[in-house]
């Protein structure tokens, strides 16, 4: 029986160490925890902020579907994904994945799989706000993100 993943979509920041502790405290069967944090880049000093739009309801559902696949594919003891929306400044957190397992390989692979699928399937869009005051463009999807997800099929 696979574990139930925890998925949260929120405007607030998250606390990575608290999320790790949630999957490890009070138990002795977890031998490996892999975390991935995605942060907002300043694009060589030109970016003031990212504005992240999402599809409420589907965002949770889609990441949930991907996370359930990860839990079925690897022997995990816990899996958490948190994605923020709203205005995010350079250096701030955007996304967190925490995968826990008895051994490292499952934790590494599950975290990688979840991120690769999330990039191309979770309904989020980023718009750039520039330092010069202009509202820049919507960030364009990368072909390489699609290819990254396809590798797991």
């Amino acid at each position: 029986m696979s574990v139930a993943p925890m998925i949260r979509i929120q405007a607030e920041d998250f606390d990575t160490s608290a999320e790790i502790a949630r999957l490890t405290s009070g138990r002795g069967d977890v031998g490996a925890v892999v975390t991935f944090s995605g942060l907002c880049r300043d694009e060589a000093g030109t970016l003031a902020a990212l504005e992240i739009e999402h599809y409420p309801g589907m965002a949770e559902a889609e990441i949930g579907r991907i996370a359930v696949q990860a839990c079925e594919r690897w022997p995990l003891t816990g899996l958490t994904a948190v994605h923020r929306f709203g205005r995010i400044l350079p250096g701030q957190n955007i996304v967190l994945v925490v995968a826990a397992s008895a051994h490292r390989q499952a934790a590494f692979e599950a975290a990688h799989f979840l991120m690769d699928y999330l990039k191309s399937r979770a309904p989020f869009w980023k718009k750039e706000h520039r330092i010069d005051g202009s509202t820049g463009e919507w960030v364009e999807a990368k072909e390489s993100d699609e290819e990254a997800a396809a590798r797991w099929r």
Binding site: I52, H54, M58, H83, M115, K119, R121, W125, K126, A141
Partner: peptide
Amino acid sequence: HVEHREPIAGAREIALFPPMTGG
């Protein structure tokens, strides 16, 4: 998510959006 060839019969809510750029 659906492909463009799929039927829309029974749809209550249909969303249109650009390729996603989350993460």
